[in-house]
Design a binder for these strands. Structure first.
Length: 766
DNA sequence: CAGTGAGCGAGCTTCCGCTTGACTT
């Protein structure tokens, strides 16, 4: 029997701590929460003062029984769940489930996993803090009430299987509102004038500068250039200002997700999966944290390492204050477990993420960079407009030697360069001056990472939920992560060179998007429905306001049942009222009338997605339907675009005893021929104009390439050559060949055996 | 893979936050 049992949340943490504590201690993990509100029904007895009905989820039964057994074998039990609201609740649930006395149960906490911190914690146990536990219960119950009362309203009034919640609904709202800003954005253009000046005294010295004013149109720009042509230029004010730049704080979950996206192109989920691997291998500290705090040990190590590697002047020990709203700081910042290792073994992605974490951590403990900003104005003798030249010189690189944070904005400015030495009053002449048309751009769409950043700023969601929330809103179909090719746009350019004016154009691509979050019709409809009926819940401040009350509960100033009651009674009234009085919401829009028949053309959310409709259902003539294509929104589709949808599917005529029909399906334009599908070539063929002859060509091409794909044809079973090598197909199910199968000698009987022995689980249909 | 848009009704869906595997591709 081991006398002491310590229970922590994470198994990786358990392993580390066990090493520190020695053989008198057994350390086990609860794997997070072990109890939750009942899965079925509401799990809350509202009439009985919101009494929660807790149960142990199926997947936790094993952990709990092991903990029970260990607990009954131990003399002392130490509950070392995290030091935050959720951790305290875990401690309380553990105590209840393990039948421990709350008055004597030893609750311990540590913020960093070092021998000192742990021994210190063991020597200073406290009791479970019931106020903190109650604030967690209030949080849990509020979220359940909101989610489980509003979601069914959506099933009735919008569509089945939808969901709403305190966090996800605000995330969707952000994306929908941003899209509407983009839709209503009107781009304006102006002309920006840049110049290259020569300093007469020095052969090769040039000065790049930009005019202090932008010009509305081409005419104004040209008029200004004409003035420029005959102007005399002199150097005006010169200002040289020293400045510093400081490193960013060490990573939290949110900032790690942002930087991994910007620098490595990782999705939020991918970042977390890779970080989890590094954590389990003991290479980094815990990856779900809102704290920028580093342990003292890490600070000392960093100082040593930086001093020996870069010199003492590069070291500056810093402790960062966590500024994110609602931070609970149960963990350290994300940092390498051993700062001595700038790199690590593992997969390519593990290496890259580790190095990013290492650089960020080390840079955070390095000296400021010192820079010198030079700003020079150049005066004209015939215009009040001035030209400004800005330059920047790094005098001491400091932390920049290791790492600098990326920004969400694209870099449009020219490379920084060193400004030549000039003095006030010095005459200049222009080498060339260019007026370039510039368009204003709408606010950017959210990426997964920038959405996490925004949610964190609003104090909505927690490090452990950012990635799952983003998955949820995509799984529900509210938003989707997509690329868009963008459109070409011509920019006018006027150049002044040697007293001559020249016009030219340059094309730029606008609206190109990569991995951005786009709202879908159903997301916009649900969002509008929630805003109309549950504006309080989707208010950007709702979480912050309830958090204040949770804090009061945690301090013992407020009773959790009272707080929930205050929230629930008006909320529930709204729910009932909405169910009784509000109409179904379908997002219907009348686009106009059919140019020939005069029938109304509408679009709305149908049973199978967004649909356009010609005619009413009440009339003798049956209405006709056509699905909207991808990238079209109910909100923005035009009458013309809707009418276009009805031009497909269209018949191209007979060929070889079958009809060829062109249409657009889920996966793009296709030709259906003898109940087989042939995709049109992207960027080459257009379903509206594709010809009879071209269709035959496409069909023959595909048939030819399919022949190569079939290695053996046994009738109902086929052996095909796929991306990953040969595989079997029967009844539209694919089967893998066992390793070492001799494809040449494979008979039909062999194939049946393989298929029979494969225990393919039934795939859940979406 | 690529269609579907009549209506009824049974039975299901759903939240947020802690933790990892257990899955398939």
């Amino acid at each position: 029997m081991i006398e002491n049992l310590v229970i922590v949340e994470s198994p990786a943490k358990a392993k580390t701590i066990e090493k520190f504590l020695g053989k008198d201690f057994r350390v086990m993990s609860s794997f997070g929460h072990i109890r939750d509100l009942a899965k079925k029904n509401l799990g809350i007895d509202i009439k009985n003062n919101f009494t929660p009905d807790y149960e142990i989820p199926k997947e936790k039964a094993k952990v709990v029984s092991e903990l029970r057994k260990a607990a009954s074998d131990s003399k002392n039990i130490w509950i070392a769940s995290d030091e935050d609201r959720e951790g305290e609740a875990i401690a309380w649930h553990l105590a209840s489930v393990l039948k421990l006395d709350l008055l004597t149960t030893k609750r311990i906490v540590f913020h960093e996993i070092t021998k000192e911190a742990i021994s210190n914690a063991i020597e200073n146990p406290r009791k479970v803090d019931m106020n903190l536990v109650n604030s967690q219960q209030a949080r849990r119950i509020l979220d359940r009430l909101v989610g489980f009362e509003i979601s069914p309203v959506l099933w009735k009034k919008v569509q089945p299987s939808l969901s709403a919640g305190r966090v996800q609904s605000v995330a969707v709202r952000l994306i929908v509102e941003r899209e509407r800003e983009i839709i209503s954005f009107e781009s304006e253009s102006s002309f920006r004038v840049t110049a290259v000046f020569r300093i007469s005294s020095e052969e090769n010295a040039i000065l790049r500068a930009e005019a202090s004013k932008r010009f509305h149109d081409e005419k104004e720009a040209l008029a200004f250039l004409e003035q420029c042509n005959i102007s005399k230029y002199t150097i005006g004010n010169i200002s040289i200002k020293p400045g510093t730049r400081s490193p960013a704080p060490p990573f939290t979950t949110s900032t790690l997700q942002q930087e991994a996206y910007r620098k490595l192109g990782f999705s939020v989920a991918q970042t977390m999966a890779v970080a989890q691997k590094l954590y389990e291998a003991g290479k980094i500290t815990y990856m779900r944290t809102d704290s920028t705090n580093l342990s003292n040990l890490a600070l000392v190590k960093a100082r040593e390492m930086i001093t020996s590697e870069f010199g003492e002047n590069y070291s500056k020990t810093r402790q960062f204050k966590t500024k994110s709203k609602g931070a609970q700081e149960a963990h350290e910042a994300i940092r390498p477990a051993y700062l001595d290792n700038p790199t690590t073994a593992g997969s390519q992605n593990e290496k890259r993420l580790y190095e990013l974490i290492w650089k960020r951590t080390v840079a955070s403990q390095m000296a400021d960079a010192r820079i010198e900003k030079t700003s020079i104005s150049i005066n004209m003798n015939n215009s009040p407009v001035t030209f400004q030249a800005n330059g920047e010189v790094i005098k001491f690189d400091g932390f920049l030697r290791v790492y600098s944070e990326s920004s969400d904005q694209e870099n449009t400015d020219e490379d920084r360069y060193v400004i030549p030495p000039v003095t006030q009053g010095m005459p200049l002449s222009y080498d060339n001056i260019t007026a370039t048309q510039k368009y204003t751009t709408p606010p950017p769409r959210y990426t997964e990472a920038s959405l996490v950043k925004k949610l964190e700023e609003l104090g909505i969601g927690r490090p452990s939920t950012y990635a799952p929330t983003i998955s949820t809103i995509q799984n529900r179909g509210y938003v989707s992560r997509e690329d868009r090719p963008g459109e070409k746009r011509e920019l006018k350019i006027i150049t002044l060179l040697d007293g001559k004016f020249a016009n030219s154009t340059k094309t730029e691509v606008t609206g190109k998007e990569k991995s951005k979050l786009f709202p879908q019709d159903i997301g916009m409809i649900v969002n509008d429905f929630l805003l109309e009926n549950f504006s309080e819940i989707v208010d950007y401040h709702f979480t912050a306001e309830v958090e204040e009350q949770f804090d009061e509960i945690a301090l013992g100033n407020l009773k959790w049942t009272g707080m929930i009651e205050q929230f629930y009674s008006p909320f529930h009234k709204t729910v009932t009222n909405t169910l009784e009085k509000k109409e179904r919401k379908t997002g219907t829009r009348l686009l106009g009338n059919h140019p020939e028949t005069g029938e109304p053309i509408t679009v709305r959310m149908g049973r199978f997605g967004p649909v356009a409709q010609i005619g009413d259902s009440g009339n003798e003539e049956k209405p006709r339907f056509a699905s909207l294509s991808k990238n079209q929104l109910l909100e923005t589709i035009t009458l013309e675009e809707a009418l276009n949808l009805f031009r497909l599917p269209r018949s191209l005529g007979e060929y070889d005893g079958g009809e060829m029909v062109v249409g657009i399906g889920k996966f793009g334009p296709y030709i259906r021929f003898k109940s087989k599908f042939f995709s049109l070539k992207k960027g080459v063929d257009d379903p509206y104009t594709v010809t009879y002859d071209r269709a035959i060509e496409i069909i023959l091409e595909k048939t030819e390439s399919d022949k190569k794909k079939v290695l053996k044809d046994f009738g109902d079973i086929m052996l095909l050559n796929g991306r990953y090598g040969p595989y079997l197909v029967k009844d539209k199910q694919n089967y893998r060949l066992p390793k070492g199968t001799d494809v040449e000698k494979l008979t039909k009987e062999d194939c049946e055996k393989i298929i029979g022995s494969s225990d393919k689980p039934k795939r859940a249909s979406k």
